[in-house]
């Protein structure tokens, strides 16, 4: 075949490979920045020593690294990857570039459930409001909304209609949350609002393990569906004509995207922007919509951006910690606008 085309293809894959390596490198750098920087700064060599459990002189550093910063950093990375992939899945599914992990009402479902607990004081007989209870509530809230959307998806033929229904369910749950807030006590409202703006603070290893056990298999599963996901770029009818069992595949996408978003949201509260923006950025950087390339790079970039934003959130006005959603949107939105203006293609 054409020599020109062969070399073109090779150049392209070389370029993609290079960008991918750069992302990987950035991920490692971000990891050390996140673990190293804070009220106490810890050197890279020391971090490596602590991770590999080599003897160190400074027990405080060891404790900070092991108990606080490592779990938090890993959580931010997995969480960022989960939100980015959730967003990517839903953007492909809805063929709509402004779709994100929360369009199906997942975050508002979680928020409502948490609202019931922390605002209205329904503790389901558990007495105290523990972080674990909040997690359970948020997860159940998110998944219930997902199931509702799935039930509706069976009835709705048109995907855009489903998108609008998802948005409406979101508004509905937000409305109920607002009722709860209106009648709640003031100090409860502040805590609740801070939760709803998202934060990675206080992540424990136990939580990281739960996050990893649920999140990582879902990320892996997304890799497995990259082929039918590509066929979906042409729309449901074309996908079906190429052999994708579209009815089943709808459920697969919605379930994967919802669980990925739900599991991290349940721990951190809704983190804005990452899920919508990261897929845009990787598409623009790699100049492709091929999901085989986008999935791994969205995982890396989601992890990098989220952990960087978390770093900023806790260091910018230390000791005050900013809500992470504020940071992700404040720094992320200009990046996306810039990338969109720079290029000539529509998404």
């Amino acid at each position: 075949m054409d020599i020109r085309n062969e070399t073109d293809t090779k150049n392209k894959s070389f370029k993609n490979f290079s960008i991918f390596l750069i992302l990987l490198l950035l991920l490692i750098v971000t990891f050390f920045l996140n673990v190293g920087i804070g009220s106490v700064n810890i050197r890279v060599a020391e971090i490596i020593q602590i991770i590999f459990q080599l003897p160190t002189e400074n027990e405080v550093h060891e404790a900070i690294t092991n108990k606080i910063r490592l779990p938090r950093t890993i959580a931010a990375m997995i969480g960022g990857a989960a939100l980015a992939i959730s967003g990517l899945l839903l953007q492909v599914f809805f063929r709509n570039p402004i779709a994100g992990p929360f369009v199906l009402g997942i975050s508002s479902g979680a928020t409502l459930a948490v609202g019931f607990i922390s605002l209205a004081g329904f503790t389901f007989g558990l007495g105290v409001i523990s972080p674990f209870l909040i997690f359970i509530a948020a997860f159940v809230g998110a998944v219930s909304v997902m199931i509702l959307v799935l039930l509706l998806a069976a009835k709705v033929r048109n995907i855009t209609t489903l998108l609008v229904i998802g948005l409406m369910v979101g508004y509905l749950t937000s409305a109920v949350t607002s009722f709860l807030m209106a009648f709640a006590e003031k100090e409860h409202v502040h805590g609740f609002v801070m939760w709803s703006l998202g934060s990675y603070s206080g992540f424990t290893w136990d939580q990281v393990i739960v996050l990893a056990i649920i999140g990582l298999p879902m990320l892996f599963a997304t890799f497995l569906i990259s082929k039918p996901l590509n066929a979906f770029l042409l729309g449901e009818d074309y996908a079906k004509s190429m052999g994708v069992p579209t009815k089943l595949f709808r459920y697969v996408i919605v379930i994967l995207a919802s669980i990925l978003a739900a599991v991290i949201t349940a721990f951190t509260g809704p983190v804005a922007f990452i899920g919508m923006a990261v897929p845009h950025i990787v598409r623009t950087v790699f100049q492709t919509s091929d999901n085989k390339i986008l999935i791994p790079s969205a995982i890396l970039l989601g992890a990098i951006l989220t952990s960087l934003c978390d770093l900023l959130a806790r260091t910018l006005y230390s000791p005050i910690e900013l809500p992470i959603s504020a940071v992700t949107a404040f720094f992320g939105a200009p990046i996306v606008i810039y990338l969109l203006l720079k290029r000539r293609n529509t998404l």
């Binding site: 066929a231 770029l233 042409l234 994708v244 919509s289 529509t346």
Partner: peptide
């Protein structure tokens, strides 16, 4: 169709599905 950043080749090659 609005398949995002897919080239003509990408579109045709999807037929190999």
């Amino acid at each position: 169709l609005s398949p995002g950043l897919m080239t003509g080749f990408d579109i045709a090659a999807l037929g190999r599905y």
